[in-house]
């Protein structure tokens, strides 16, 4: 598992990567009430605003961690946004993407580095 400075987790599975937000991010956001996900098939570039997550307090963008293509999204969190608070690093994944270059994963933090990053 890899982590971005935007508090996303990236889990490689074969030639694709599953993306979600960390428990730390979910706690900071508070109760999630709305999630908007991209269309499967969308081509994305690193740092594109690909998804929106709104808590009772505020709206935040989810940025594309790498260049690539969205291949699958988790409609369950659109139907039930509260899942993002219940199980952010499991059931409440956001989308699966096919990176243009899998080796770009190496640039991200591992779990130990992320823990240090969030203090």
């Amino acid at each position: 598992m890899k982590y971005t400075e935007e508090h996303e987790w990236l889990r490689p599975e074969g030639d694709s990567v599953v993306v979600g937000i960390t428990r730390h991010a979910a706690e900071q956001l508070g109760d999630v009430v709305f999630v908007e996900l991209p269309e499967p098939g969308t081509t994305i570039s690193k740092d594109d605003e690909v998804a929106v997550i709104e808590s009772v307090k505020a709206a935040s963008d989810i940025l594309a961690p790498m260049d690539g293509e969205i291949v699958e999204v988790n409609e369950a969190i659109v139907e039930e946004p509260g899942k993002v608070n219940d199980d952010p690093e499991g059931e409440a994944w956001f989308f699966r993407m096919k990176p243009a270059d899998m080796s770009a994963l190496d640039d991200f933090m591992d779990e130990a580095a992320y823990r240090e990053f969030i203090g």
């Binding site: 508070g30 109760d31 808590s55 009772v56 307090k57 608070n85």
Partner: peptide, 12 residues
């Protein structure tokens, strides 16, 4: 205090 550990939804 903006919220306590229960969170906005439960507090509401």
């Amino acid at each position: 205090p903006v919220q306590y550990p229960a969170g906005v939804m439960r507090e509401h």
